[in-house]
Structures are given as structure tokens and as C-alpha cells.
């Protein structure tokens, strides 16, 4: 038997306390931003912000200025109605973000068999899911509550007053609540679908089908039964209903916002439970 020097000491450097989920998220975010589609979506979302800043400029400009004539246009006013528009008009961009960036996260890892490498590090399944969900949550945030709150802040600065906000004091909370619902439900759905396959393209097709066909199915049931409650099956309809409810606007569908909230909560829970089962280092055939 060879005589081994067992005096070996492992690396004793100082370790950071940065959660692994954060490190994974940063790496994933860098990769996502490299994608042209993602950059285009962010640019389009930025154009929305610019348009709303322009609207704000018109709204807060003195009556005697050249652009003051635009104040006659009914929707040139930053309030809960325009904020509702700001968030709902960008819905398509949110779906594109999920398709372009988020849906490939786990599928790509599964294809590259990188999940086992992650889970052979000090990374738990929860860390992994969080690390994959955070980048999409960040991308969705920069197109929802972040610019919306910045717009509110800008209006406060431009008017040098909080008076307008005292008429709608719930507005920031509504923005945050709707954004939270949108981000959590979309992220969990996207990741759950991403974990179903090893092909990012297939995952994108499945997610697009979900976005497209589930509302169609809900519409079909609604038409057949003449009961609007079937719309609750559609994630988009549920989000729309909740958004209008949170912004105190007229509800677009004839079902309770609580049903919509329950449907979204159920969808999110199922997706997260599914993810916890699905994300594992080894694809196991059968039991064990």
C-alpha cells in the first residue's frame, strides 16, 4: 500500500454569505439580457415609460405653454386609470418575456444536464428554483411596478405635491399588488412548463399554447354554458379582472375577483409543487 500524506488541508478562504439563488439569478440575468428579443422587449417597455413621461410633462406643464392644448385630450392625465392602462397594455410584452427568456431556464439546464452539477453544490432545490425564478421576476418587474412607481414619483416631483395622491392613496399599493400577482403567477407557470422538457423551443411552444388555447377553451365553455365564470380558467382573464378590481375600475368579466384570486393562487401552488417534484438531479425511471 502506498503511504499517503494525509496532512492535506482543504481551502480555508473566507466565504461569502450571498445566497446561491442570488448568484444563480445574476448569472442567468446576464445571459437573458444578451438575448436580442429580451432587449427589444425591454426597449419597447421603455418606450411606454417615455410616452407616459411625455404625458406627465403635458399634464404638469403650465396652462400658457405651447403643449398645454394637449391637456384637452381626455387620457393625458397620470392617475389610476392611466396606470391601469400602463400595466395592461404591456401584457403582451410580459408574455413575450416569459417566452423569450424564462421558459428556457430549466429546459436548457435539463438539456445540458446542469441540474446535477448545481445540486452537487451547496444548493438546495428551493435555491435552484428561486435562482431560476428571480431573473424572470426582475425582467417582469422592470416592466411593471418599477416604472409605474417611478412615474408616480416623477409626478410627485413635478407637481411638488402629494395632493393628487391623497385622492387615490391606494394607487402605489394597487400597482404593487397587481405586479406581485402577475410576477408570481407568470414566473411559477413559466418555470413549471420549462421543467417539463429538455428543449427550450418545445417549452416555448407549450407556454405559448397555454397562453393561447386556455383562454380559447374558457371562451368556448362560456359560450356553450352562457356562464361567464368559465373565464376564470384563463390566467389572462383572471389577471385582468384582478387588475381592474385593484385599480377600482369597472370589472371586464362577470365573475368574482375572489374567484380570480383563488384560481391564480391555485395555479401558482400547483406549479410550485410540481416544480419541487420535477427539479431533481437525476431523471428517475419509476419509483425509488
Amino acid at each position: 500500500m502506498p503511504i499517503h500524506d494525509v496532512s492535506y488541508q482543504r481551502w480555508q478562504g473566507r466565504r461569502t454569505d450571498v445566497p446561491p439563488a442570488f448568484i444563480m439569478a445574476m448569472a442567468q440575468l446576464r445571459l437573458a439580457i444578451r438575448r436580442r428579443v429580451v432587449r427589444i422587449v425591454l426597449l419597447l417597455s421603455g418606450l411606454f415609460v417615455v410616452a407616459f413621461i411625455g404625458m406627465l410633462y403635458v399634464e404638469t406643464t403650465p396652462e400658457d405653454s405651447a403643449v398645454a392644448v394637449l391637456k384637452q385630450v381626455p387620457f393625458i392625465r397620470l392617475d389610476s386609470t392611466s396606470m391601469l392602462r400602463f400595466l395592461t397594455w404591456q401584457r403582451m410584452l410580459h408574455y413575450v418575456l416569459c417566452l423569450a427568456a424564462g421558459v428556457g431556464y430549466i429546459a436548457r439546464d435539463r438539456r445540458a444536464k446542469a441540474v446535477q452539477l448545481y445540486l452537487a453544490r451547496p444548493v438546495r432545490v428551493q435555491d435552484y428554483i428561486l435562482g431560476k425564478g428571480l431573473p424572470l421576476a426582475v425582467l417582469l418587474s422592470v416592466t411593471t411596478w418599477v416604472p409605474a412607481l417611478i412615474l408616480i414619483l416623477l409626478k410627485c416631483l413635478a407637481t411638488a405635491s402629494l395632493e393628487w395622491l391623497t385622492q387615490e392613496p391606494w394607487l402605489p399599493l394597487s400597482i404593487l399588488a397587481y405586479s406581485a400577482l402577475l410576477v408570481v403567477s407568470l414566473v411559477s407557470l413559466t418555470l413549471a412548463i420549462s421543467s417539463l422538457t429538455t428543449s427550450p423551443i418545445m417549452a416555448a411552444v407549450m407556454l405559448a399554447s397555454f397562453f393561447l388555447f386556455v383562454p380559447l377553451l374558457a371562451e368556448l365553455f362560456r359560450a356553450l354554458t352562457r356562464n361567464d365564470t368559465w373565464q376564470v380558467l384563463s390566467m389572462q382573464a383572471s389577471l385582468e379582472q384582478l387588475c381592474h378590481w385593484l385599480f377600482d375600475a369597472r370589472l371586464p368579466h362577470d365573475f368574482s375577483p375572489w374567484s380570480a384570486l383563488f384560481a391564480l393562487a391555485l395555479l401558482t401552488t400547483v406549479c410550485l409543487l410540481f416544480l419541487m417534484r420535477r427539479v431533481r438531479a437525476v431523471d428517475i425511471v419509476g419509483g425509488g
Binding site: R15, P20, L117
Partner: peptide, 10 residues
Amino acid sequence: RLMLRLCGVR
């Protein structure tokens, strides 16, 4: 670098 950062290396 990513793998090292996941293990807590600065």
C-alpha cells in the same frame, strides 16, 4: 467562476 461563487467564494 459561477460554480465557485455558488460555493461561497468571493
